[in-house]
C-alpha cells in the first residue's frame, strides 16, 4: 500500500473543501494518509481531519511562517515528505500550492503534475488527467522513474468525503532557522471576500456585451444572490474595465465550476477553452449565432440589460 501526504489548506479554522476532496481520494485508495498544515489555524483545522480518516497531521503555526514564504515552506514540506516516506503528495491548485510544490519537487527530485482534473491512486502509483491548451484537449499523466509523485488538483473535481468518526494525532513542527533571501514585506488584502475563480462552484461572467465597467454591477448583484464569483472575458480585461485577476480563458484562469453564466460573451476560442469544462453553462447574448451557444446547456437570446435584473430578482425570490 502506498502512503499519501495531503497538503491541506485552511479557511479560518476549517479545512478547505478543495483539500478535503484530496483527503477523500487518498483514503478511498486504501493508502495510509498523513496531512501537512502550515500557518494560522493549522492545529484547529487538522483536528477535524481524523473524521476523514487521516491518522497523523504535521502542523506548525509558528510566527515565522504565519505568512507564506517559499523558502521556509518548501524546506519544511520537503523534510516532512522525506521523513514520512510517502510516495504520493497531493495538493490543491491554490496560488500558494502552485508556487510552493514545484520548489519541493526540485528539492526531492520528484515528478510534478499540476492543474489535474482526474486522479486515480492504486497502490503507490498515481495516475491523473490534465487539460492541455486550456482544455482544447486533455492527456493522461503518469510518472516514470519518480519514486515520489506530486499531483496538484484543480478544485471541484473530486467528491467531498463525508465525515465519520476518528481522531487525528497532531505532530508539531519547528520552522527552520535560516538566512532568508525572500522577505514578505506586506500583504494587501483583496476587497473581495468571495471564493477565488479557481475554487468557485458558480461563476457569473461578463464580456463586451456588458458595454462598460459600470454595468458589472448587474453581474455583482446576481453573483451576490447566488454566492457566485464574477469573471470576465479577455476583451473587457484588455479594455481595462476589470482586473486581469478575474479573466477566464487561455491567458487567464481556466475554470470548471458547476454553473457558468456567460453574459454578453460571444465566445472566442480562447475563452471557450477556459470554461467549456464547466458542468452547466448558461449563455445570455443578443446574437443568436454567437459561438458561446454551441457550448452552452441553456441559452437566452436577449439583451443582458433586460434579462439580468429579472434573473437576479427571480433567484432572490426562490433562494429566500
Amino acid at each position: 500500500m502506498g502512503k499519501v501526504l495531503v497538503y491541506c489548506e485552511t479557511n479560518d479554522s476549517q479545512v478547505k473543501k478543495a483539500s478535503l476532496e484530496l483527503v477523500g481520494a487518498a483514503t478511498k485508495s486504501g493508502a495510509e494518509v498523513v496531512a501537512l498544515l502550515l500557518g494560522a489555524n493549522a492545529k484547529a483545522a487538522a483536528a477535524q481531519l481524523g473524521a476523514y480518516g487521516v491518522k497523523t497531521a504535521f502542523v506548525c503555526e509558528a510566527e515565522s511562517i504565519k505568512n507564506y514564504n517559499s523558502e521556509l515552506y518548501s524546506e519544511m514540506a520537503s523534510n516532512i515528505i522525506k521523513e514520512s516516506q510517502c510516495t504520493i503528495v497531493l495538493a490543491t491548485g491554490s496560488s500558494l500550492a502552485r508556487d510552493l510544490f514545484p520548489r519541493v519537487a526540485s528539492q526531492l527530485d520528484a515528478g510534478i503534475a499540476t492543474d489535474c482534473t482526474e486522479l486515480e491512486i492504486s497502490g503507490d502509483k498515481a495516475v491523473a488527467r490534465k487539460p492541455l491548451f486550456a482544455g482544447k484537449c486533455s492527456a493522461k499523466v503518469s510518472f516514470q522513474n519518480s519514486p515520489l509523485q506530486i499531483v496538484l488538483m484543480r478544485a471541484n473535481q473530486l467528491p467531498v468525503p463525508t465525515a465519520g468518526a476518528g481522531t487525528c494525532e497532531l505532530k508539531e513542527l519547528t520552522p527552520p532557522q535560516k538566512d532568508l533571501k525572500t522577505l514578505v514585506k506586506e500583504i494587501v488584502k483583496g476587497s473581495s471576500a468571495k471564493l477565488d475563480l479557481s475554487e468557485a462552484s458558480i461563476i457569473v461572467s461578463g464580456g463586451r456585451g456588458m458595454k462598460g465597467p459600470e454595468h458589472f454591477k448587474l453581474l455583482n448583484d446576481l453573483a451576490d444572490v447566488l454566492g457566485a464569483t464574477v469573471g470576465a472575458s479577455r476583451a473587457v480585461v484588455d479594455a481595462g474595465w476589470v482586473p486581469h485577476s478575474i479573466q477566464v480563458g487561455q491567458t487567464g484562469k481556466t475554470v470548471a465550476p458547476n454553473l457558468y453564466i456567460a453574459c454578453g460573451i460571444s465566445g472566442a476560442i480562447q475563452h471557450l477553452a477556459g470554461m467549456s469544462s464547466s458542468k452547466v453553462i448558461v449563455a445570455i447574448n443578443k446574437d443568436p449565432d454567437a459561438p458561446i451557444f454551441k457550448k452552452s446547456t441553456y441559452g437566452i437570446v436577449g439583451d443582458v440589460f433586460e434579462v439580468l435584473p429579472v434573473l437576479t430578482e427571480e433567484f432572490r425570490k426562490v433562494l429566500k
Binding site: K140, I281, K294, T297
Partner: peptide, 20 residues
C-alpha cells in the same frame, strides 16, 4: 522526464443548447 503524457482526448461533445 518524470512526468509523461499519453492517451490524448478531445473534450466530449456537449449536448446541444436548449434555447429558452
Amino acid at each position: 522526464s518524470k512526468v509523461v503524457y499519453s492517451d490524448y482526448q478531445l473534450p466530449a461533445d456537449r449536448p446541444s443548447c436548449k434555447i429558452l
